[in-house]
């Protein structure tokens, strides 16, 4: 990651960031949720989240919604990541690490091909 940290660097991001907001409101977008309860955090959810954000940032994908949730009771499989593409089933991945998270973004979020071998649950879209 390059060193963008000064206030000038932040200002330079301004237009892009505001444009991203507009796109966000108008389009149907992919949705990623990371489990961030005590169990998820202890298992490495923050590193997974950082990897996901980093992949999205590299690809300038500001239209993807990234969110977090608490413990859903499947602590043994943490870190858990849910990926839902518009009109597609919700896929839950278990035991995700940084490397898996990067591949999930590349293969599932970008190319629309779920990584079924790591999926622990698939819920059909309503």
């Amino acid at each position: 990651m390059t060193g963008i940290k000064s206030i000038e660097d932040l200002r330079a991001l301004k237009e892009k960031a505001l444009l991203g907001l507009k796109q966000r409101e108008t389009s149907n977008k992919p949705y990623i949720v990371v489990g961030m309860g005590t169990c998820g955090i202890a298992a490495g959810a923050r590193e997974v989240m950082k990897a996901i954000l980093d992949e999205l940032e590299k690809r300038h994908m500001t239209d993807v919604l990234v969110s977090q949730t608490g413990c859903i009771g499947l602590c043994a499989k943490e870190p858990l990541v849910d990926v839902t593409l518009p009109g597609q089933p919700k896929v839950t991945y278990g035991n995700v690490n940084e490397a898996k998270a990067r591949q999930i973004v590349a293969q599932h979020v970008v190319n629309g091909q779920p990584v079924y071998e790591w999926a622990i649950n698939v819920v059909e879209a309503k």
């Binding site: 963008i4 940290k5 991203g20 950082k50 954000l53 980093d54 999205l56 940032e57 500001t62 990234v66």
Partner: peptide, 14 residues
Amino acid sequence: RVLQNPEVINWMRC
């Protein structure tokens, strides 16, 4: 909500 932008998050981290 601009804080949700991955590039802004990266800026904050750096």
